[in-house]
Amino acid sequence: MPETIKTLILGLGNTLIRDDGVGIRVVRELKNHLPSSDNLHIEESSLFGLALIDLILGYDRVIILDAVKTGAHPVGYVHEVGVEELKGLPAAPSPHYTGLPSLLRLSRELKLDAPTQMQVLGIEVADPYSFGEEFTPELKEVFPRIVHRILEIINKTQSRTVDDSVPVNT
């Protein structure tokens, strides 16, 4: 891995809405395991859509952690999603839903310093709809395992060369 690769690990979500804050809680844990350096930043945010552009510019690689509820996997399962898999719904009904694919395409068109590699880690949760600062018991129980799994994924990604890692198709 060349030294010059700048990576951002970004936790998204809302810690007021139960399990929805899982991405943020995980990155807070990651800070204890992965020392921040010039080449690795760990951040959290409750922003979304176009506002994410402010956070991701200037990095070569961005790994996003967020809550997902598909119902098809057990709570705590970590989905690994490439940005191209989020595509396919081009005209969003609100600018706030401007997704990562459009965001990246836009950044390139405007010649902004957009990341070349991007990955979303979606954490399966039970209740991302209700107000509350506590996780559901199901999520609470598996939380340490989620952190462990995500560390595994990140370490695996970090050890790959640029050419092998997830490309962003525009």
Binding site: L86, L89, P90, A91, S94, G99, L100, V120
Partner: peptide, 28 residues
């Protein structure tokens, strides 16, 4: 779908929690 979207898009409905959950596009 597009014509229907054009009908509610002017109001810019805010879908609260639906928005930041996964940074993909808003489905309809």
């Amino acid at each position: 779908l597009n014509m229907v979207e054009m009908a509610f898009r002017p109001y810019d409905p805010c879908h609260a929690c639906a928005t930041h959950a996964l940074p993909g596009e808003m489905p309809l």
